[in-house]
């Protein structure tokens, strides 16, 4: 049974080497084997056969950026839970109370961003518009 550090991680290294070889092989073969015929139309971005309009390097909805930020905060929290879970049976209620306080703080942040609408992906409800339209009509 491997017990030393190098012996435990040697198979991981080996697997990384194998994965590297397979990945390199696949990608290299893709672009080395096979007949290559160049053509102007062929090398255009694919937009269902219509000449492409504009570039794909446009500004994009900020929501994705927000989700990425929020994710980093909460994922760090989730990773904190793992060492906590491993020693849980030794610490019992102490660990529970400690983590409860931590999670409560995180949850406060979670409800804050929820209320702020970071998690709201659909468009704004049309209520504001109807309010404006109907008072004049009635």
């Amino acid at each position: 049974m491997p017990a030393s550090f190098p012996d435990l991680y040697f198979p991981v290294l080996l697997q990384v080497v194998i994965a590297f070889a397979v990945a390199t092989g696949l990608v290299a073969m893709a672009f080395l084997v096979g007949k290559r015929v160049r053509g102007k139309v062929k090398e255009m971005p694919y937009e269902c056969g219509i000449p492409p309009t504009g570039s794909a390097r446009e500004r994009f909805s900020v929501k994705f950026y927000l989700v990425a930020m929020v994710f980093i905060l909460f994922d760090i929290e989730a990773i904190f839970l793992y060492p906590w879970a491993v020693v849980y049976r030794e610490l019992k209620l102490f660990a529970f109370v400690e983590m409860f306080v931590f999670i409560a703080l995180i949850l406060a942040g979670f409800f804050y961003i929820w209320k702020k609408g970071v998690l709201n992906w659909s468009r704004e409800e049309p209520e504001v518009v109807t309010e404006r339209r109907y008072p004049d009509a009635v």
Binding site: V27, L32, K35, M44
Partner: peptide
Amino acid sequence: TKEGLIPQQVNKIYFLLAPF
């Protein structure tokens, strides 16, 4: 045996790095 197409507009390094 199919042709591995690298379109004109792509960022070549990352385009190859992604499937890798």
